[in-house]
Amino acid sequence: MNKRLIIGGMLAVAFAGLPGMSLAGDIANIQPIGFSADGKVFGFQEFGIEESGNLPYSNTYFIDTEDGHYLEGTPFHTELTDKDANLSKARRQNLTAARSQMDKYDLLTNPGLIAAFNPPTELGSPSKTIRYTTLATDGPPKAPYTLSLGEMPVPTPKDCTAVDKRVIGFSLQMIEKEGAPNRQAARQATAVPAERVCSVEYRIGGAVVYQPEAGNQVHIALVLAFDADRNGRWIAVPVHP
């Protein structure tokens, strides 16, 4: 596959859908794989059962955290259509296909920290902001960060002309940095990657943090993109405070 830009831009939890909205689509589960030792590569897997055809699928993504691109030759997509297909089989086949990249960058050795998680099943949680610290300690929060997600119109791609809702992109801003107000534009989208080309809504779903032995912290914003049928898929957006 060609290298593609993640513009704009985890836990294995089953999502039922956003509260008060149609449950017609499926929302993918997400599982982090980890970082390379230098923090320059991040990998994650998403998986689930397609609502339309009841087909198990699994996708594994490897992201260059410096420029937001997919690594060359990735991602890896698996969708099973045989009659004895199941989610376990789809995930195993997908991870087998992706294993060479996982081993090349030693991602399982450096899982990073899931600093915040904001699933749509958590009632009352904000959908456009997330606040977290980078140390897993008890007690008062220390030097917190806040990410804010905005949505904006983009030109409708030709593949989305049949969609009866407005196709949008998103912007991401770090509005708090180590406890102080901040206005850093982390990433802005005027288009979306091929897998998310017809997205009509976004939710900020989590944050993962990794501290290399040498170098600055890497933050990954987990953004959930919805299409018009309420199918939810994930985008990992690198942020460098």
Score class of each variant (00 low, 15 high):
230 R>F: 10
101 Q>R: 11
240 H>F: 05
3 K>Y: 11
105 Y>P: 00
178 E>S: 06
12 A>V: 09
175 I>W: 04
138 D>G: 11
192 V>P: 13
40 K>G: 07
67 D>V: 10
234 W>P: 00
22 S>I: 04
211 Q>V: 02
29 N>A: 15
111 P>S: 03
53 G>T: 15
214 A>C: 04
108 L>V: 10
167 V>D: 03
30 I>T: 07
200 V>E: 10
232 G>E: 04
178 E>K: 09
34 G>R: 09
158 K>S: 13
236 A>N: 08
35 F>C: 07
101 Q>I: 14
78 T>M: 13
179 G>L: 07
167 V>Y: 06
160 C>T: 05
95 L>D: 00
238 P>W: 02
71 L>E: 11
176 E>M: 04
138 D>V: 12
21 M>W: 06
24 A>E: 01
143 A>W: 11
45 Q>E: 15
20 G>L: 15
182 N>E: 04
215 G>Q: 10
78 T>V: 08
32 P>R: 07
166 R>A: 08
217 Q>P: 01
124 G>N: 13
38 D>W: 12
234 W>K: 07
225 A>T: 06
198 C>K: 00
74 T>D: 10
145 Y>M: 04
106 D>M: 13
77 H>A: 08
155 P>A: 05
170 F>P: 01
179 G>Y: 03
107 L>P: 14
10 M>I: 10
101 Q>C: 07
143 A>G: 04
141 P>W: 03
6 I>M: 04
153 P>Q: 09
97 A>Q: 09
218 V>T: 13
123 L>S: 15
77 H>T: 03
144 P>L: 00
96 T>P: 05
20 G>V: 15
205 G>Q: 04
104 K>D: 09
180 A>T: 09
12 A>N: 12
153 P>M: 10
143 A>R: 14
239 V>T: 11
168 I>A: 01
211 Q>T: 02
241 P>Q: 13
231 N>A: 13
44 F>G: 01
167 V>A: 09
77 H>I: 05
173 Q>C: 08
227 D>A: 07
214 A>K: 12
206 G>R: 01
230 R>Y: 14
104 K>N: 09
134 T>K: 05
159 D>W: 01
143 A>L: 05
52 S>P: 05
58 S>R: 10
187 R>H: 10
115 A>G: 09
135 L>N: 15
186 A>Q: 12
91 R>Y: 08
102 M>P: 05
67 D>I: 15
236 A>Q: 10
163 V>H: 03
61 Y>Q: 00
197 V>Q: 10
112 G>P: 05
188 Q>I: 14
212 P>E: 13
148 S>P: 14
74 T>H: 11
226 F>A: 06
118 N>A: 12
68 G>Q: 04
80 L>V: 05
144 P>N: 06
12 A>L: 10
103 D>I: 12
180 A>Q: 03
146 T>W: 03
69 H>Q: 07
40 K>Q: 13
227 D>S: 05
14 A>G: 02
10 M>R: 00
